[in-house]
Nucleic acid binder design. Structure first.
Length: 294
DNA sequence: AAGAACTCCTGTTGGC
DNA sequence: TGCCAACAGGAGTTCT
């Protein structure tokens, strides 16, 4: 489900109920998600304190006082629900959800020392969790080849140009590749390419000159990626704030997309007369305007 | 060996 | 209304 802005929003929502708190009780309701849950999962968590909660790419990382790190990936449909001691619930995910309404896909439940009950729900079970000593994290297959954080300084036009150099794949696949830029997904790749006026079909190495130097297209793309992610995070944050005083429903993803999900509708580029088209690339829907994205 | 296709799983949606 | 194919914010594995 979530891309970087959604994962970051979930992290921010979880932080106050996890960071500095202990796992008083951990319920594991099935042996696996996408992969088997870690060995002795419950025993290694119970009694441990979360020292801090970080995000890397689309992973949420809980650093524990045992020296281990709990990593959580939400896959396509993973979500966390926080139930506060008073009984009202807060959902960090896509859909409105009344806590307790349907526990069919509630797979892991954390009861924290602050009193919050944090439930991981994942219908498709494409999400996963791992638990390992902090030192092993950088060598772990999930993290080792991960590309740069798009909101950090490492993402710049020269980096993109260098990584794109010689790559014959198209820009859509290039940007979806977590080894290049970590955290983008189908929606934000479509949105960033639209903002940069670049066709998803353009060959990736067109971002670089023959000398491997960045092109104006690479510069535009970097700016577009940063801005769309920053705006989305800001929107997620404000939604969460509103929610705290709300009654139990959360319209979480209210961000307005320029192309994603807008097949057949007019392109929003000022002065452009094109329509948004949808096509399938690598089994995923790509939305783009053929007129202003070249 | 890069690049594309296939796969895991369940739920929702839209067309007939 | 029912049925069924298509599709869904991901990414590891297996192919060509």
């Amino acid at each position: 489900m979530p891309e970087l802005p959604e994962v970051e929003t979930v992290r921010r929502g979880l932080e106050p109920v996890l960071a500095g708190k202990r796992f008083n009780k951990v319920e594991q309701r099935r042996p696996d998600l996408r992969f088997p849950l870690p060995e002795r999962f419950v025993a290694r968590l119970e009694g441990r304190k979360v020292e801090r909660l970080e995000r890397r790419a689309k992973y949420i990382l809980a650093h524990l006082d045992s020296g281990e790190v709990l990593t959580m990936h939400l896959g396509m449909t993973g979500r966390f629900t926080i139930t506060k001691p008073k009984g009202n619930s807060q959902q960090l995910g896509e859909f409105t959800y009344e806590h307790g309404a349907d526990a069919t896909h509630d797979h892991v439940v954390f009861t924290m020392s602050g009193g919050a009950i944090v439930t991981y729900n994942d219908a498709r079970r494409f999400g996963y969790m791992t638990l390992m000593p902090e030192a092993e994290l950088i060598e772990h297959p999930h993290f080792k080849g991960l590309g740069v954080e798009p909101l950090g300084n490492e993402l710049n036009a020269d980096y993109l140009a260098r990584r794109a150099s010689g790559k014959k794949t198209d820009l859509k696949a290039f940007l979806m590749d977590q080894r290049i830029v970590a955290g983008l997904g189908n929606i934000y790749v479509c949105e960033a390419l639209w903002r940069a006026h670049l066709s998803p079909d353009r060959v990736a190495h067109a971002l670089a000159t023959r000398m491997g130097k960045a092109t104006p297209a690479a510069e535009r793309l970097v700016g577009a990626i940063r801005r769309v992610l920053e705006e989305a995070i800001a929107a997620g944050g404000s939604t969460l704030r509103d929610y705290k005083q709300a009654d139990g429903s959360l319209g979480y993803f209210q961000h307005r997309f320029a192309v994603y999900g807008r097949e057949g509708e007019p392109c929003l580029t000022p002065g452009c007369r094109g329509k948004v088209r949808r096509k399938t690339q690598a089994g995923r829907s790509t939305f783009a305007c053929r007129v202003c994205q070249r």
